[in-house]
């Protein structure tokens, strides 16, 4: 374990060194991350300049929700970005190499290159969080800070588990990125609003089938101290970060199962 961590760290450093050589792409890719995540927030800002609330949530409250979701997304994206390129690693046969090296193949995929896009998302997330805490009525206590941190990590694990499970389909099918794109979009779109807006059915699905609710909506409600209408009890709401751990383990099991049917068709 400790050994693997040391090796992974060495590979990560190498990936960052490699990426640092392409300065120009740095800027464009980072801007892309900012535009991608920023345009969603711009929409909310625009409509809430004319309307008082969405589903009973005011602009400052939705800003907190949006910031938590985006922060969870960034925490997921920075280490797991390379999953996006699993399609091409498999197609070009590069993945073969990961199976003849003494380190978990997933860790090798993740440390193959360092992506700068994820920095754009991180910058946007931190920016919106600062903005949101300045306009929202938040009373930070050590307990809520701790809870928020755990919730962000839990949210990242939910997104990560889903991403790992879907990406691992690349071992069987040629093109998986559109499915990843769709899943990303579902998390982004549903996750940025109070789920009650989408109706009872969608809310139930987004809570118990795909746990979008636990990424940001439930934690945001806990932090804002307005847990009515969540569809889960207060206790469950406080346990939200655990959902991520469970979900991530499930995702990894799917990955292991799919890996067994890897056929190394690339050449």
């Amino acid at each position: 374990m400790l050994d693997s961590a040391r090796v992974t760290w060495a590979l990560t450093r190498a990936a960052v060194r490699g990426a640092a050589q392409y300065r120009l792409n740095f800027v464009i890719l980072a801007l892309m991350g900012i535009a991608y995540q920023g345009s969603g927030f711009a929409f909310i800002a625009v409509v809430l300049s004319r309307y008082p609330s969405i589903g009973g949530w005011t602009f400052p409250q939705i800003a907190v929700l949006y910031a938590l979701r985006l922060l969870a997304h960034a925490v997921y994206l920075v280490p797991l970005y390379m999953l996006n390129e699993l399609d091409s690693l498999v197609r070009e046969g590069t993945f073969d190499r990961f199976l003849v090296r003494p380190l978990n193949p997933l860790l090798q995929v993740l440390t193959r290159r360092f992506s700068v896009n994820s920095l754009g998302d991180t910058v946007t997330a931190v920016g919106i969080l600062c903005y949101a805490s300045s306009i929202a009525d938040l009373r930070w206590t050590p307990m809520t800070v701790l809870y928020a941190a755990a919730a962000v990590l839990g949210g990242a694990l939910i997104e990560g588990g889903l991403a790992i499970a879907i990406s691992s389909m690349a071992f069987r099918f040629v093109e998986v990125w559109p499915a990843r794109y769709l899943a990303d979009h579902i998390l982004l779109n549903f996750g940025s609003y109070p789920l009650s807006v989408f109706g009872a059915v969608a809310q139930w699905v987004m809570t118990w089938i795909v746990p979008v609710a636990f990424v940001a909506w439930v934690p945001a409600a806990v932090i804002l101290d307005s847990t009515d209408g969540l569809g889960v009890s207060g206790t469950v709401a406080w346990l939200a970060p655990l959902v991520g751990a469970i979900w991530f383990c499930l995702g990894y099991q799917v990955w292991r199962f799919q890996l067994r049917s890897y056929e190394s068709t690339g050449n």
């Binding site: 073969d96 199976l99 003849v100 067994r260 890897y262 056929e263 190394s264």
Partner: peptide, 9 residues
């Protein structure tokens, strides 16, 4: 070769 190296099952 891929089976001998463990890449393929």
């Amino acid at each position: 070769i891929k089976m001998m190296t463990g890449i393929l099952v």
